[in-house]
Design a protein around this nucleic acid. Structure first.
Lengths: 95, 95
DNA sequence: TAAATAGGTTTATATTATAAACCATTTTAT
DNA sequence: ATAAAATGGTTTATAATATAAACCTATTTA
């Protein structure tokens, strides 16, 4: 038996992992907040958020604040579970 | 300031991380041992070992055991340091 | 002596990450 | 009033990566 469990490829990505890490600690977060916290480009962030949403790990809500578009992200229960089990698996690699 | 340090892309790979994780606990390890422990294909393992060697994270020694080729791997001090700081950085993502 | 096994490497392909270019709108400066 | 810059993103193209498939050389077994 291998001592290593497979790591969810969707979470084993620096930017997506950082996003999930941020979202797990808050109720919800805006696109611009995620962008500045992760130091990512908007394009990269947009793509990665899409993937997380398609996987059902986050929900993305589009609205307006005043006249400006506003993108808000929230982790789902499925996302929380996936994140937690990713972390459990990862620990076997780094202990 | 971003709360996330960049993760060494060489180590942020499931197979290479597993290899480093194994090597850090032993004096040296054979190709076939790494292959079975990581459940990887020989081709994939060969490629990833090459990258680790080129980065100076491991040393690869080729010899024979009896008449058969034998590939042995050993982590370097540079590799130990890189692994440790990768783990430190990673913790910020998963705490 | 043919077939299977060992111990790999090389090459091709699919996936991923990333940056660059773009778009619509709003705000600021002239 | 109009041009220029900023906001808040998306889409597309490219580069990097991971992975598997094919291959190679030699050895052992049937």
């Amino acid at each position: 038996m291998s001592p290593f469990s497979p790591l969810d490829p969707l979470l084993h990505s620096q930017l997506r992992l950082a996003v999930m890490s941020l979202l797990i600690g808050v109720d919800e977060a805006e696109f611009t907040f995620l962008k500045e916290q992760t130091q990512s480009t908007a394009g990269n962030l947009s793509v990665q958020l899409d993937k997380l949403e398609k996987a059902g790990y986050i929900e993305i809500t589009k609205s307006f604040r005043g006249k400006r578009p506003l993108t808000t992200c929230k982790i789902t229960q499925k996302g929380v579970t996936a994140f937690e089990s990713y972390v459990e698996n990862l620990k076997k690699y780094i202990e």
